[in-house]
Amino acid sequence: MLDHVNGYTLFDTAIGTCGIAWSGVGVVAFELPEATAADTEDRLRRVHRAAQQQPTPEIERAISAIVAHLDGSADDLRWIPLDLRRVTDFDRNVYAVTRDIDPGRTLTYGDVADLLELRGAAQAVGQSLGRNPIPLIVPCHRVLAAGNELRGFSAPGGTGTKRRLLAIEHAPGFDDPVLF
């Protein structure tokens, strides 16, 4: 049980109802929209064993920035505090590199592994990002397979969601407004 989670809330965005869970340290989870708002809430409640709460002022500020970001106002969201106490050191390192990727830019799993000085660890990076509890804020959608291909995205909607997030950020090759 994630006993350090203080609460969660749902909020509407341009892509649907998202959810965020937090502790006294920072954000512990972010949920991209499931098929319904009830499904998003169920996942937050079930996975993070949190209760719905009124967001703190800092979380309210984060929600406003996320809503604006998903409306197309690029914010790197790096200023949002995270609580990564429940992830491994390896995952924490992968997430730190991933968080440094600017909106509209991408790296490959191999690039991230190289930046961590772990040549040949692209698959491990991919697995780490598949466990990412805070997508968008830890922008795992900005990491692509070799050849800049979209492959496996564990968030709801899979690679379609990944493509949509990259289009919102005007990433080269994904910024075609006709996609949606």
Rank of each mutant, 00 (worst) to 15 (best):
R46D: 14
V94P: 00
E60T: 15
A65W: 10
L44Y: 06
R142D: 02
A37T: 07
Y8V: 04
A167Q: 11
L32I: 01
D100M: 12
T159G: 04
R99V: 13
A62S: 15
G157S: 10
I101H: 05
I168A: 01
A121I: 03
P103W: 09
V67F: 03
H69L: 12
V87Q: 10
N148W: 08
V97L: 10
L116T: 05
M1L: 08
E31H: 09
N6L: 10
L116G: 05
I59Q: 08
R78S: 15
C140W: 00
V5H: 01
D100Q: 14
A96T: 14
G147Y: 06
R131V: 05
G19P: 04
A122W: 03
G157A: 08
D76E: 13
D71C: 13
R151W: 08
R105T: 11
E60V: 14
N93W: 06
R61M: 14
E41W: 00
D102C: 07
N148Y: 14
T36I: 06
R164H: 14
A121N: 11
P139T: 07
P33S: 09
C140Q: 12
R142S: 02
V87T: 14
E34G: 01
C140P: 00
T161Q: 09
G19H: 01
T40E: 04
V28F: 00
V94M: 01
G16T: 07
V143N: 00
T88A: 13
A121R: 14
S64I: 06
L129Y: 04
